[in-house]
Design a protein around this nucleic acid. Structure first.
Lengths: 336, 336
DNA sequence: ATATACTATATAAGCGCTTTCATTTCAATA
DNA sequence: TATTGAAATGAAAGCGCTTATATAGTATAT
C-alpha cells in the first residue's frame, strides 16, 4: 500500500483537494457536513499530511529547532525538559539537532525546516554565519553568547556576577587564600567565572596568585589530578578554599582532598557551580551556585515564539544564579 | 533581502536550474568548468537549498529521527552522544523529537521528514500506531520493546538476564534475604529486572517474599523513603542485601541505611543497575550492572542505516550487561 | 556527406500541499 | 422577474527542488 496523499482523500471523499485541505486545517468556510465527512474519510484512510509539502507551501512548521553539539551533562537535562514542555504548551514541537557539522547545522537552520532556532554552540558558528542567519531573517535566540544585535535574542547566565558573589561569600567566611579550578579557556562560562573570581579578590584587597588557578577541565578526574598535584607542589600547604568552576570539579577536588587525609570543610572549604543532582547527596553536601536553568529554558522558548508570532525583536537577558550554602564550606578555623 | 533560491543562482550563473541542481548534488554529467562556476555563484550568493523542496521531491532527507518523551537521566547521555557520532560518521543527521504528544510524534514519523526513526517511548505508541508505521514502510528501530515484526528492528537490554545474574552474584556471596527496590510497574526494565530477580531466587531455592519488594520509583528520594519505612516496619531487621532497580535507587538506599547508622557493605550489601557516572565515586563505590549503552546507540544507528540503504530487514538484538563489582557488596558476615 | 554516438545543457513535469480566485448554487431583495 | 450577494466548492497556480526526457552541439564511424 502506497502512501496516502491529500489526492486520495479527495477522490475517496468525492471532493476537491482544496476542500480536503480546508477541512483538515479548520478553515471556516465549509459546510459542517462536508467537513466532518472529509475528516471521517481522512481518518479511515489513516491519512497523515506530508510535512514537506505542507511546509514548502506554507512556510510554517510549528517547530522550533535546538542546535547543540551535545546533550550530555546535567545542564541539558533541565534545559531540554523545560524547553520541550514549554513548546508543547504553545503548540510547537521541539526539534533537537545534535551535531558538530557546521554544514548540517547551517543547512537545517536556513533550510526552512523550523520556524525559529535556539543555538547552543560553543564553537563553530562564527560571525559570518550569524550574519547569514540574520540576513535570512531566521528568528533566533542564543544560549551561550551575547549577541549585539536587534533581530536576535540571547538568554545567558551571569557567570561573572555569580562567581563574584561566590568568592565574596568565601571571603566573608574569613578565607584569604582562595584557589580557582577552571575549565579550558575556550569555555565562555569558565572564563567568566574566573574573571568574576579575580574581580572579587581584587575588590576585597586580596592578591590573585597565578599559581592558585588550577586546570581541571571541568571534569571529575581532571580536577582530582589538578588538586593532587597542586598539593604536591605546595608541599601539603592548602589554600583556605577552592572555588571550582563546576560541581564535577568540586567533587573531584573533594575526592582528592579526602584521599590526602583532609577533612572538608574543617581543613578547607569547597564551593562549586551548577548544583547538579548529586551535589546535595554528596558527603559533605556541596555548597554551590544554582543556575536558573529551568527559567532559561522557559524564557528562551517564550521569547522565540513571541519573536515569531508577534514580530517582537531580540531581547538580551542575563540570569542571576543563587548560592546554595551546604556543608562543604564554613568559617575559616584558626589553627594554632 | 529575500531568500535566495535555486532560480536566483541559475539566473546569476546564466544556466538552467537543473544545471545548478546537478552541480550542487555532484551529479557527474557536467563540464567541470560549468560546475565550478555554478558552485562559485552559489557560494557568492550564500545559497542554502530549501530542505523542504528538496525532500518533497527526492524523499531522502539523510536525517534520522529519534523520538522520546525525555532526554533526562544518565542513560540518554551516552545514548544520544553515540547515536549522533555514529550518524555523523555515516553522513546522516540526528533529529531528536522530545514530546509526549502522540499527534506530533506520528505526524513527524509519517510526515516524511526523516529517512528512518528510532523510537523510545514507554507509553503512547500502541499497536495500531505500529501497524501504521509499518504500512507506511517507515524504517524503524525500537529501543524499549521487542517487536515481533520483520520490517522493524529492536535493540534492547536483557534486563531479565542481567538481574538474574546480579541476584545470583549476591546469592553466591552467601546472602539469603535479598530485597528488590523497584520502579513503577509500567517501566519495562524495572519489571524485567524484578522477574529476573525472582527467577534467580526461585532457581536457587530461596523464597520470594512479597514484602521484600520495595517501591522506590527509580529515584533517589523515593528509594530513600522506601528503605527508611521498610526498616521501620521490620523494626530494624535488615535484609542481607538490596538489589536496586537502578543506581539512583541504590544511592538513595545507601543514604537511608547510612543515616540509620548502618555500614555498607559490612551490615548490608547494595547492588544497583546502570553504572551512572557517579557510581564509582560514591562512598562506598557502588557495585552495579553496566549496560552497553554506547553499543546500543551504535548498533541502532548502524542497523537503521542498513535497513534504509540496503533494504535489510529488522533485526532483534538483546544486549547483555556487565556486573561491575565495587565496594558496596561483600560476602555475608556471620554475626553472633 | 550521412548516420551514429556521445557530451553537455535545457525543458518541463511533478512531488504534496496551501491559497487565491473563479465558479456555482440558491436565497434574499428590488 | 431580474439582480445581488452570500455561502460552498472547485480549479489552478506555485512553493523550491529533482529528474526523466528532449535538444543541441560535437566527434567518430560509415
Amino acid at each position: 500500500m502506497a502512501k496516502v496523499t491529500i489526492k486520495d482523500v479527495a477522490r475517496e471523499a468525492g471532493v476537491s483537494i482544496s476542500t480536503v485541505s480546508n477541512a483538515l486545517n479548520d478553515v471556516d468556510v465549509l459546510n459542517p457536513e462536508t467537513k466532518s465527512h472529509v475528516l471521517n474519510v481522512a481518518k479511515r484512510l489513516n491519512y497523515v499530511p506530508n510535512l514537506n509539502g505542507k511546509l514548502l507551501k506554507s512556510g510554517k512548521s510549528k517547530m522550533l529547532g535546538f542546535f547543540t553539539t551535545s546533550v550530555s551533562g546535567p545542564y541539558f537535562y533541565t534545559l531540554v525538559e523545560t524547553m520541550s514542555r514549554e513548546c508543547d504548551r504553545h503548540g510547537y514541537g521541539l526539534n533537537i539537532f545534535v551535531t558538530k557539522d557546521k554544514q548540517v547545522i547551517m543547512s537545517n537552520i536556513l533550510g526552512g525546516r523550523v520556524d525559529g532556532v535556539i543555538i547552543y554552540e560553543e564553537l563553530g558558528i562564527d560571525d559570518m554565519d550569524i550574519a547569514l542567519i540574520e540576513k535570512n531573517k531566521i528568528k533566533s535566540v542564543f544560549l551561550d553568547r551575547e549577541i549585539q544585535n536587534e533581530t536576535m535574542g540571547s538568554i545567558i547566565f551571569d557567570s561573572y556576577v555569580d562567581a563574584y558573589e561566590a568568592t565574596k561569600y568565601l571571603i566573608s567566611l574569613g578565607h584569604k587564600k582562595i584557589a580557582y579550578i577552571s575549565g579550558v579557556e575556550t569555555m565562555f562560562d569558565s572564563e567568566q567565572r574566573k574573571a568574576g573570581y579575580l574581580a572579587a579578590l581584587h575588590d576585597y584587597g586580596l592578591t590573585a596568585d597565578e599559581g592558585y588557578i588550577l586546570q581541571g577541565y571541568f571534569e571529575e578526574e581532571g580536577s582530582y589530578n589538578a588538586v593532587k598535584s597542586f598539593v604536591n607542589i605546595h608541599s601539603g600547604k592548602l589554600p583556605d578554599a577552592f572555588l571550582a568552576g563546576n560541581d564535577l570539579s568540586a567533587i573531584g577536588a573533594m575526592r582528592a582532598l579526602k584521599s590526602l587525609g583532609y577533612e572538608i570543610p574543617r581543613d578547607v572549604s569547597v564551593v562549586g557551580f551548577d548544583d547538579i543532582d548529586i551535589a546535595q547527596y554528596f558527603s559533605p553536601p556541596l555548597t554551590t551556585v544554582r543556575n536558573q536553568i529551568a527559567r532559561q529554558g522557559m524564557l528562551v522558548v517564550n521569547h522565540l515564539i513571541r519573536m515569531i508570532q508577534k514580530k517582537e525583536q531580540g531581547r538580551h537577558e542575563k540570569l542571576q544564579g543563587e548560592l546554595i550554602v551546604r556543608n562543604s564550606s564554613q568559617i575559616k578555623m584558626v589553627r594554632d
